[in-house]
Design a binder for these strands. Structure first.
Lengths: 212, 212
DNA sequence: GATAAATAAATACGACCGGTCGGTTTTATT
DNA sequence: AATAAAACCGACCGGTCGTATTTATTTATC
């Protein structure tokens, strides 16, 4: 397998551009993300960036995919290292709040910003975001279902409802933390999920008492 | 008290413009709200609109105030007609979900869209939105505190935390309902608050069993 | 009916937008 | 060493943005 250095260089550039695009879009949205700003923030020319994607929409879609990869790496992967069941659900939520609290992205949450931005605008970007949200929801529900199957949550639990609740606490944290007192926002976001899981679980000792 | 008809007419025009601005901004954000689009959607000239506000930022701030008035009228006022306590909290949340479900605004939620849009952008708009969110939070907490004082919620309840949770379920509904299945989203949003209140209240019969 | 204030329209400006193009540099293959 | 391909650049296009100025049209009050 020979590696074409020209393609490799392009791939590196492409990834670097998309990382910057995710950051910028978390602040200004996918629409506010302009080729000029993106180029300036990377110290390259506008056309040098544009050459990699055939249109702005293609760039937006690629940016979404990159954000998904980042989410997978920084939130989902760490959670999957926790044991199945309520601890994994808790680890996922904690990783998410940490992601917001450590300000990985200047805008806080790429998906919160862009999903609100495009929820009323038809088009390919809307559809891609809808798919991403559906996948994320299915993943959350899978984690909840696993906890039920392990007996760490009662069988009567409404899986989809609990997944909705947990995600809600995360979304609200992303939204409020930049407008409101971040510390109490994060404390509430962590507390709400912890209380919910401990309140439901037949064995609350699986989880810490206080927000870790 | 003599009313100057010229001023009255100006006020009427201004209100009509701001109503359209709230609708447009709920779809495209306060930044995407352009004077040209706004003028077109009202059948007037761009400068005819611009004359009423000295800058786009002034228009954005006025639009926020108008959205607050609309929220006050359609969500807060109806809730205040319910008796104090958990029933009022429930009525508030139901009015909110109804507001989303009946598609009063094409974008779903003005505040969800704009608060995510501006949470990472310093400036007057950010600050105004922060104040609005703080007022809304204080109002929600007041309703929860009243329920505690009435004995309809246990004294140990963390008022700020419960207010956070209730608002989270509303925010998530606004965000998900346009990308995902609206029916299940609204059902989850209603269920989550109802279950939470009934679970906490010493007298669950105050609230209906199923989503109304 | 005259007058002054308020409102609306017309027009234009500079900045920036996404997008195009021809040409240069870097890199791999032959 | 020659050729081809990919990456990258600078200049430029038409269009739209917010903004400003200037002119015309309502409308209330004297």
């Amino acid at each position: 397998m020979t590696v074409d250095g020209r393609l490799a260089r392009g791939e590196r550039t492409r990834t670097a551009v998309l990382d910057a695009a995710v950051s910028l879009a978390s602040e200004s949205g996918l629409d506010g993300l302009s080729l000029g700003h993106l180029a300036d923030s990377l110290g390259v020319s506008k056309s040098g960036i544009f050459a990699h994607w055939r249109s702005k929409e293609a760039l937006q879609l690629a940016t979404i995919d990159r954000a998904v990869a980042q989410w997978q790496e920084l939130i989902i992967a760490p959670a999957l290292r926790a044991p199945r069941g309520v601890r994994r659900i808790h680890a996922l939520h904690e990783a998410r709040i940490d992601f917001y609290a450590t300000r990985v992205l200047p805008g806080g949450c790429f998906f919160g910003t862009t999903e609100f931005e495009f929820n009323a605008r038809p088009g390919a970007v809307h559809d891609r975001l809808a798919t991403v949200l559906a996948d994320w929801t299915a993943f959350l529900e899978r984690l909840v279902r696993e906890a039920v199957e392990l007996g760490e949550l009662p069988a009567e639990v409404d899986v989809a409802l609990l997944a909705y609740e947990i995600d809600s606490f995360g979304i609200a944290a992303a939204m409020r933390s930049r407008l409101f007192d971040p510390e109490s926002t994060y404390r509430h976001a962590r507390r709400s999920v912890l209380d919910r899981l401990r309140g439901l679980s037949p064995d609350p000792t699986l989880l810490p008492e206080g927000p870790s």
